[in-house]
Design a binder for these strands. Structure first.
Lengths: 100, 100
DNA sequence: AAGATATTTCTAGAATAATGGAAATATTAT
DNA sequence: ATAATATTTCCATTATTCTAGAAATATCTT
């Protein structure tokens, strides 16, 4: 994928637009390529499992996060590429006019 | 202001996370420094006035848009600085780990 | 002052999202 | 097979957001 549609971009923005999810996403960004198991995220965020799971699944749905199973642990990874596309989308046309 | 809090960032992201508002915001970004009157935006977006006003006020609330009255016209302007802060926030720590 | 224009505020109904406990599923260990 | 662990799915409740008509406000024109 090389470019987001308005729909895709607004969906992703909406998912990042929740404090718990934004925090979760940043934890994963910070965790880098090794990612992080759900349990570790939960420890950092201090929310009930079902709530956390709900938020993770929303980030999964829009492709900002990916999960890989490792035994009984599910490891989550931030999808940097998606964030880059989103930022690209936000900056598009930003200089169609004058200085920016 | 030089840095957003998580709360501020998530509020702004939530407001951009709606297709009509994202579209509206991009129209203003594209319009550049001269901005655009509400009526002109309405013509481009084709939504009822009260709906448009609601969306504009949400963007105003988080500082992504600013309005200046010119007679009976209200001219809207995108606040690029805010978007830059937001993008900065999203990219923070992005390379705390390895390649990015 | 009255009328026209631009836009907002009020209001209410419909839709969507957030939260978290309890039950279900998947995997590993004994 | 049973138990233990990790996580999700189900469910119901509460809260928030969306939408748009109608009324209100602000400004300009005559």
């Amino acid at each position: 994928m090389t470019r987001l549609t308005l729909e895709q971009a607004s969906e992703q923005l909406a998912e990042l637009g929740h404090p718990t999810r934004l925090s979760l996403y940043r934890i994963l960004v910070k965790a880098g390529n090794r990612g992080m198991p759900v349990a570790d995220i939960q420890q950092q965020l201090d929310v009930p499992g079902s709530t956390l799971s709900h938020h993770i699944s929303r980030l999964l749905k829009v492709g900002l996060v990916v999960q890989v199973r490792e035994g009984r642990v599910l490891r989550c990874h931030a999808q940097y590429e998606r964030l880059n596309l989103l930022i690209q989308f936000l900056m598009e046309e930003c200089c169609a006019d004058e200085r920016c």
